[in-house]
Design a protein around this nucleic acid. Structure first.
Length: 339
DNA sequence: AACGCGACCTGCGAGC
DNA sequence: TGCTCGCAGGTCGCGT
């Protein structure tokens, strides 16, 4: 169940296997996994077959593959809008399509999605939802499979738009100033070189809300989910309900740096996993769960307090219809706006 | 603008 | 054994 580090692990895995490959056939096993593709499974498959994958791009938890040589690419409409009136603009030079891309295959893993590179001989996974067959390549798996137990994730085709700030749309091997339409409302993440702390802090201060709610708001800063929000708050010794309009610059920097650190550490460990639900692109699990200090540790000692000779046990609160874990000693709850 | 809630889904473990 | 309940890492859209 992926947050930014898990999705980045998947992106890196996909890059080496998918770049330059052509999608030769598409099998939508469960149409619910492409429900965000409004025009349905046939349109989805028809527009993917024959397309070539140029790159794998990530912003926050959204992942997309810009495509070339799509059957009905140009015209600005892309396959999603279904408005393509022929795309005559570049019809005269098919080669141009190799460097120009207006369409991307979008993926969001939701809570339980996986993108697996598999050989044809590997039996179908229990929750296989979509299968892409790929052009043969030396020693490379022949299929990309989307597997998803809970079906909160999905695949769909989308248009690529110019970014609003002119920077790259996301982390990529060959960054382009283009962003997938459905990810254009998503802020840059703390690992993005174009992330601006000053902008983040200004917008954070302008909000009338609690700190964790802000950290989870993908429009303010992306990539942070429930696990890493709790871990970042613990590292920064801040409470989830701390009003954002009282945060000093140093405190905001502390929690942002903490988020960056914890996600960088998780990335190095190959992503967090509690069970086999999350696996990387080759099917191996991450090991970062062993390093969690707050998330899931209700009733256990606070390691930092213990190291200081204090006794404190972490508590779990219901917040935003989910669990939040805090140390009552080193992350005291703010009192009436003050703290 | 902010927030709370339901919807979207399956499956697991705990408790009875 | 089998039932219900609560819980799970995310996002979207609605009503207030």
């Amino acid at each position: 169940m992926p947050e930014l580090p898990e999705v980045e692990v998947v992106r890196r895995g996909l890059v080496s296997w998918m770049r330059g490959r052509t999608i030769t056939a598409v099998e939508v096993v469960d149409p619910r996994s492409i429900r965000r593709h409004a025009l349905g499974p046939e349109d989805f498959a028809g527009n993917l077959e024959g397309a070539r994958v140029l790159d794998v791009v990530r912003r926050g938890k959204f992942l997309w593959m810009p495509l070339a040589d799509t059957p009905a690419p140009a015209g600005g409409a892309g396959p999603v809008g279904g408005r393509s009136p022929g795309g005559a603009a570049d019809a005269a030079s098919p080669r141009a399509a190799q460097t120009q891309t207006t369409v991307a295959l979008m993926a969001h893993l939701g809570m339980s999605g996986q993108l697996l590179m598999q050989d044809t001989a590997v039996p179908d996974e229990k929750h296989l939802k979509v299968r892409l067959r790929l052009s043969p390549a030396d020693g490379m798996p022949e299929q990309l499979r989307f597997v998803d137990q809970r079906i909160f994730g999905g695949l769909f085709l989308t248009s690529l738009l110019p970014t609003s700030d002119g920077g790259p749309g996301g982390l990529a091997e060959t960054p382009l100033p283009l962003i997938a339409e459905e990810a254009s409302h998503i802020a840059r993440d703390p690992l993005d070189p174009y992330f601006s702390f000053d902008d983040f802090y200004r917008r954070l201060r302008a909000r009338k809300t609690g700190l964790k709610r802000a950290l989870l708001d993908q429009g303010l800063v992306s990539g942070i989910g429930n696990i890493y929000a709790d871990e970042a708050l613990w590292r920064a010794k801040l409470h989830y309900a701390r009003p954002t309009d009282t945060l000093r610059r140093a405190e905001a920097l502390r929690v942002l740096d903490a988020a960056r650190e914890v996600m960088t550490d998780a990335l190095a460990a190959g992503g967090t996993s509690f069970d086999s639900l999350y696996v990387n692109v080759n099917g191996a699990s991450g090991y970062f769960d062993r390093s969690l200090n707050a998330y899931g540790r209700e009733g256990q000692e606070c390691k930092r307090c213990a190291a200081a000779g204090l006794i404190s046990t972490l508590r779990r609160d219901q917040f935003m219809n989910r669990s939040s874990y805090t140390c009552p000693v080193c992350q005291p709850r703010p009192r009436n706006g003050r703290w």
